[in-house]
Amino acid sequence: MFQRTLRTSAAALFLLLTAACGASAEAESSSSSSSSSSDLSSVTLRVGATGWKSEEAILQYAGLDDTPYKVKWNLFQGGDLQLQAIRAGALDLASSSEIPPVFAAADGEPNFRVVAVQRAATLNQEVVVPKGSKVTDIAGLKGGKVGYVQNTTAHYFLYELLKQAGLKWSDIDAKPLLPNDGLAALNGGGIDAFASYGTSITTAHQQGATTVGSGADILSGNFLWSARDSVLKSPAQKAAVADLIARITRAYAYVRDGHEDGFAKITADATHQPLAQARKDLLDAQAQRPTEARPVGDDTIASQQKVADAFTELGALKEKLDVKSFWTTALDAELRKAL
């Protein structure tokens, strides 16, 4: 199982690198032809999505997908893979939690910058155990095999939950797994618990899993938009990025303004869950923290620094990382105007 995960990750990265080679000419063409922010017709943004293409779906639902530029949505199992794609030149814009950019920047000179923050709910970020498990809390994981999605929110909140329970990372047999592989390992008895997020947690509960720990109050709710450096050098691409992020904020506002049921139906169909559960999850998420974008601020940089320091403490980062080195306010003015 775990060898298969490594092979899957390697294959995914190979495909990303291959895609980057084919996409580089397109990116250069787009950049050179988009000489001003008013000329968006020649811009194509390659944008990442995790779990399912919820951003694309909500823009369509709210009637805000009529962009004057083209958007190619690319689906990934995690924000960490989106940042790998950014590094490989296969994406222009990635959406992730605070964690993936930390590891992408620590892996060498970053070719991206965090340009905006999307505030969103931290629900469905959990450590779950399979049906019939005798484990009832995090302390019960001592000595057990625990799967987690590496370099993501799951990695971070699992570490923090262990500390809260008086355990060290070395007190568990930690197994890095992709969401789908983690679910298979959980149901097949390969691991005793799984730390994950989003649709994988929803599916785990549908299969009888129970929650033994939650990252809801550990995570900041800051989800980051990271753009390739080449995007920031093009006025037209910058304008398109600001416009797209603002449209997503307006789309969520539209849903909250009495249009929850329709988007809950779309979500239920896409995630294969009961409509009532999808509606409840949507309402709970928007009640906890309405999804909306904001420009870069000192507080958002400080929040990610806290996360990076925790990974240094854990030993996942070899040395302290100054996160503000890969943040920029270059999009702030255009984003404020677009919002």
Results as ranks from 00 to 15, higher is better:
Ala116Asp: 00
Ala116Tyr: 02
Val117Gly: 05
Val117Ala: 05
Ala120Gly: 05
Ala120Cys: 03
Ala121Gly: 12
Ala121Cys: 09
Thr122Leu: 01
Leu123Met: 13
Asn124Glu: 11
Glu126His: 13
Val128Tyr: 07
Val128Trp: 07
Val129Glu: 08
Pro130Cys: 08
Lys134Trp: 00
Lys134Tyr: 00
Lys134Cys: 01
Thr136Arg: 15
Asp137Met: 02
Gly140Met: 06
Leu141Arg: 02
Leu141Lys: 02
Leu141Thr: 06
Leu141His: 02
Lys142Met: 10
Lys142Arg: 10
Gly143Met: 12
Lys145Leu: 01
Val146Gln: 00
Val146Ala: 00
Tyr148Val: 04
Val149Cys: 12
Gln150Ala: 13
Asn151Pro: 01
Asn151Lys: 08
Asn151Val: 11
Thr153Arg: 11
Ala154His: 06
Ala154Cys: 07
His155Tyr: 06
Tyr156Leu: 15
Tyr156Lys: 07
Leu158Pro: 04
Leu158Arg: 06
Glu160Gln: 14
Glu160Ser: 13
Leu161Met: 10
Gln164Trp: 10
Leu167Cys: 08
Lys168Leu: 15
Lys168Cys: 15
Ser170Glu: 15
Asp171Lys: 06
Asp171Ser: 14
Ile172Gly: 08
Ala174Trp: 02
Lys175Ser: 01
Pro176Ile: 07
Leu178Asn: 12
Leu178His: 11
Asn180Tyr: 09
Asn180Ile: 05
Asn180Ala: 15
Asn180Arg: 11
Ala184Trp: 01
Ala185Ile: 00
Leu186Asp: 00
Leu186Tyr: 00
Asn187Glu: 03
Asn187Asp: 01
Asn187Leu: 07
Gly190Ile: 12
Ile191Gly: 01
Ile191Ser: 01
Asp192Cys: 03
Phe194Asp: 06
Ala195Leu: 08
Ala195Ser: 12
Ala195Lys: 13
Ala195Cys: 08
Ser196Glu: 03
Ser196Leu: 04
Tyr197Asn: 13
Gly198Asn: 09
Thr199Val: 14
Thr199Tyr: 14
Thr199Ser: 15
Thr203Ile: 05
Ala204His: 04
Ala204Leu: 04
Gln206Pro: 01
Gln207Leu: 15
Ala209Ile: 07
Thr211Leu: 10
Val212Asn: 01
Gly213Leu: 12
Ser214Lys: 14
Ala216Tyr: 13
Ala216Glu: 15
Asp217Ser: 11
Ile218Tyr: 04
Leu219Pro: 05
Ser220Ile: 01
Ser220Thr: 11
Gly221Asn: 05
Asn222Glu: 13
Phe223Gly: 12
Phe223Glu: 12
Leu224Cys: 13
Leu224Val: 15
Trp225Phe: 14
Trp225Gly: 08
Trp225Pro: 06
Ser226Lys: 02
Asp229Val: 03
Ser230Val: 12
Val231Asn: 13
Ser234Thr: 09
Pro235Trp: 06
Ala236Ile: 09
Gln237Ile: 06
Lys238Phe: 04
Ala239Gln: 13
Ala240Ser: 07
Ala242Asn: 09
Leu244Gln: 03
Ile245Pro: 08
Ala246Phe: 03
Arg247Pro: 02
Thr249Asp: 14
